[in-house]
Design a binder for these strands. Structure first.
Lengths: 238, 238
DNA sequence: ACACCTATCTATAATAA
DNA sequence: TTTATTATAGATAGGTG
């Protein structure tokens, strides 16, 4: 737009970033308005600034548009759920659907959780509960990703070893040593209650039976690493 | 834009209107994307064309933004309708029990939440959900405590003023306001089931009927203010 | 935060495929 | 009818104050 072409990439200078946000936001809202008028369309914009301030625009009204959107999403969600869950192809039939349901239920509870009127005591208690489960979830996630990384490393190592041996012996170096570089911090066996370690790291709770046939869904998980939102990224970093 | 300035008014010709919608929509979404990247903002756009087709853009995710939006709306609405909700004093004794039930239900779900077999994607999603709600809870808690502290300070001030006046006038400053500096975090008979206090903070469990007579349990909690997660801090600041 | 300047970008219209 | 291309009027946004 202006003097020189701007790289679309986070502006480092905070002040500049703020100014730019202000200007571009105004432009964006104006264009949304123009679009809605010129083309008789329903347009809604919700924007949160870096500091959390809310800016919004909605052509007939935010309520109506959100409602309409929810409706369309509900439809999509159903169809999506409908054709995604029954894809199993092989025999491990149901380890995923109970989870989907439980997640959905939990989500519902979380979403409709109304904090007004709760006493300080209850808030603290709930906070701790969530914090605890957050720790479990993060630990589980890290464990999962760590396994991914390890298995990836192992594969690569084996591949290299194979190639090397092949160069030397020109033969099949069939049985490979599994030399895990990364030690597994788990190894604790308290398979059940009282994960007293809700802190951010470790606490890899022993995965008891380890369903997840462990080869099916790995690859799709790894690419998630590239799409991590900030919080998750931080979690991984820390 | 081109030949002559375009009046911002519904385009009469249907074909032209359609073309214009297509182009301007593309431009709008692009600009939304640029804004979100350049300024590290959360931006969501929902647009329905004249014929009802949905077009959308969302910076981290539509879900998260809509949730955040709903939340901010709810918060605004509540603060607008008055912070008088936790004040009852009179006969409506039941505002707390639905919460207890809901909490209990949520607890149940959280406790029996089995993480085994969840995919990385689901773990990330759940983590975000919990993190978000944790932020809400902490913010709410801090808000509550802040109010408490303020009111306590006020009482103390009034008390001092009263005492001063008493010294001067030699009146008896008989009724002392109770404003305990330090409180005992324990001392509760946890009325019902395990509020697992797994975290490091003082965990004020249970003790149902005590809707904070507003002076007892503050001080140990206050230090939480230093450990706020980002969202809460923002919420409070704003 | 606002205002100015202007290089750059956008969207229209005309034309063509 | 839709889709692409082109030229260009004018809106946009970066830099500066």
């Amino acid at each position: 737009m202006p003097r020189r072409t701007v790289k679309i990439k986070r502006i480092e200078n905070a002040a500049t970033r703020q100014i730019t946000f202000c200007k571009r936001r105004a432009g964006l809202l104006k264009k949304a308005h123009d679009l809605s008028v010129l083309c008789d369309a329903e347009v809604a914009i919700i924007a949160f600034s870096e500091k959390g301030r809310l800016f919004e625009f909605a052509s007939p009204s935010m309520d109506s548009i959100l409602k309409r959107y929810m409706d369309s999403q509900k439809y999509l969600g159903i169809s999506e759920e409908g054709n995604s869950s029954p894809r199993l192809l092989n025999g491990d039939k149901d380890w995923v659907t109970p989870f989907r349901n439980k997640l959905k239920k939990l989500r519902g509870d979380l979403v409709e959780l109304d904090l007004e009127g709760l006493s300080g005591r209850n808030l603290i208690s709930l906070e701790q509960e969530l914090n605890y489960n957050l720790g479990r979830i993060r630990a589980k996630k890290d464990q999962l990703f760590l396994r991914e990384i390890e298995s990836c490393c192992n594969k690569e190592l084996m591949h290299k070893a194979h190639k090397l041996k092949g160069q030397v012996m020109d033969e099949n170096a069939a049985e490979k040593v599994d030399c895990p570089r990364v030690s597994n911090p788990a190894a604790s066996e308290n398979a059940d209650e009282e994960f007293s370690q809700m802190d951010r790291y470790a606490s890899y709770d022993a995965d008891v039976t380890d369903y997840c046939p462990s080869s099916v869904k790995k690859s799709t998980v790894v690419q998630d690493l590239n799409r991590l939102p900030l919080e998750s990224a931080q979690t991984l970093v820390e």
